[in-house]
């Protein structure tokens, strides 16, 4: 996280908290659907679509550069309730398995860096993986995402092996158990 964004975050922290509370998806207080404890295997794994996006600091990231790692690509937005609920568990998963070759990428749809930073600064734990910006939603459409959140798991050969439509507890043992066989650093 750059110094510039850290400074912006400090100045806007309280404002961001207020904004997030007012601007979040309405109806979030209703009984929350449970987060799911599993990923859906893709019957016939195919090469992942291209994913080349910049993060909050403007640094470019290319999925093709991550060949050899097990990559979790999560499409989300700050106003999406299940996206907000599952984000800490994605960070837990990342912390647990990154030394063994897992890499998480979160792709925010349609929002700017300040909005995303203001929100993620309030998360516990805050994400340490790259937060990429898909401002025009073209990447999301290329991946044929139909609703948020949607997550894909890309194996070290660059193939989509799992998908997850709707919120997940990514650090649940059942999910971790599905990922372990594909980690390059088993």
């Amino acid at each position: 996280m750059s110094f510039v964004h850290a400074e912006i975050g400090m100045k806007r922290g309280l404002f961001g908290l207020l904004l997030a509370c007012i601007a979040a998806f309405p109806g979030a207080a209703a009984d929350l659907p449970p987060l799911t404890h599993g990923l859906t295997p893709v019957a016939e794994p195919k090469p992942a679509p291209a994913l080349r996006l910049a993060d909050l600091d403007g640094k470019p990231h290319d999925l093709a550069d991550l060949r050899g790692k097990l990559v979790v690509v999560n499409f989300w937005a700050t106003w999406c309730p299940p996206c907000r609920r599952e984000m800490p568990s994605l960070e837990h998963l990342n912390q647990r398995l990154q030394a063994r070759g897992l890499k998480a990428l979160a792709v925010d749809v349609g929002e700017d860096a300040d909005t995303v930073f203001s929100f993620t600064g309030q998360l516990e734990p805050a994400p340490t993986f790259p937060l990429l910006l898909d401002r025009d939603s073209q990447t999301m459409q290329r991946w044929k995402v139909k609703g948020l959140p949607t997550t894909f798991v890309i194996d070290p050969q660059g193939r989509v092996i799992y998908r997850a439509v709707g919120g997940r507890e990514f650090d649940h043992d059942a999910v971790v158990g599905q990922l372990l066989p594909y980690l390059p650093g088993r």
Binding site: L17, A20, A24, R85, P88, Q122
Partner: peptide, 13 residues
Amino acid sequence: PCPRSSAGNSRTQ
């Protein structure tokens, strides 16, 4: 607080 209620309750059902 809002962020905790929305993002920190992934285990709450």
